[in-house]
Nucleic acid binder design. Structure first.
Length: 216
DNA sequence: CTCCCGATAT
DNA sequence: ATATCAGGAG
């Protein structure tokens, strides 16, 4: 995508979602890390329902270590992928205590060493908890970037991230990341994207293709 | 690449 | 019935 169209995308997203933000409820970096870990292949809404009780019951890494695995599994069962997630939360808590004084390290390279924390989760924690510029590429960011033609269809999530970092000014990385998610979640949805009323239709390769299929 | 996985939308 | 949801590990 050329510079002019990219600027149009950024301006339009800003108009559509001026105050996009992290929709995962959390009070600190530790809770945010747990929430993002739980959010894999699950809606934010569902995660928030579960963490409302979870964060009342568990406050520190020690609390997660103290509980039997089976009990923690039941506490998060409604999220899905719950066995892996419960195991990761306990291992992550253990590692935090052993190597990080029980605190979430504000360093990307350290975060990805934590069980259940990959590049995307680390980026979310860095940007939302530690105010560090980052673009986390989740399912929405990837889908939207590819549909609009910001990046190639066959790009990996890492390539998508690198392309976005190159095309977006660094000071706008975090906000743009949130706007791309809102755009993907509420407008350019996986099923039933709102192409008919999309202000970006003129520059959207996929959107124009979809509209053609509809009229014919 | 496959597996993990319940809940919700379509 | 099937697709999708703020992915990560083996």
């Amino acid at each position: 995508m050329n510079k002019k169209n990219m600027q149009t995308v950024l301006d339009t997203l800003k108009e559509m979602f001026p105050d996009a933000y992290c929709e995962l409820d959390h009070a600190n970096a530790f809770e945010l890390t747990i929430a993002v870990l739980l959010s894999a292949q699950c809606t934010d809404k569902k995660v928030n329902e579960v963490t409302a009780d979870l964060f009342q019951k568990y406050k520190t890494p020690d609390d997660y270590i103290a509980v039997p695995l089976e009990e923690l599994e039941q506490d998060i069962k409604r999220i899905g992928l719950y066995r892996n997630k419960a195991k990761n939360i306990k291992a992550l808590s253990q590692l935090l205590i052993e190597q990080y004084n029980g605190e979430i390290p504000p360093v990307h390279e350290e975060l990805v060493k934590l069980p259940g924390v990959g590049r995307k989760t680390a980026n979310v924690v860095m940007s939302n908890a530690f105010d560090y510029p980052a673009i986390a590429v989740d399912t929405h960011v990837e889908r939207v970037s590819k549909r609009l033609g910001i990046c190639k269809w066959k790009d990996s999530v890492l390539q998508v991230e690198q392309t976005l970092m190159k095309k977006v000014p660094k000071e706008e990385w975090t906000m743009t990341h949130h706007r791309l998610i809102f755009f993907g979640r509420y407008h350019c949805k996986a099923q039933n994207p709102q192409c008919e009323i999309c202000p970006l239709l003129e520059l959207c390769r996929e959107g124009k293709k979809r509209m053609k299929v509809k009229v014919s």
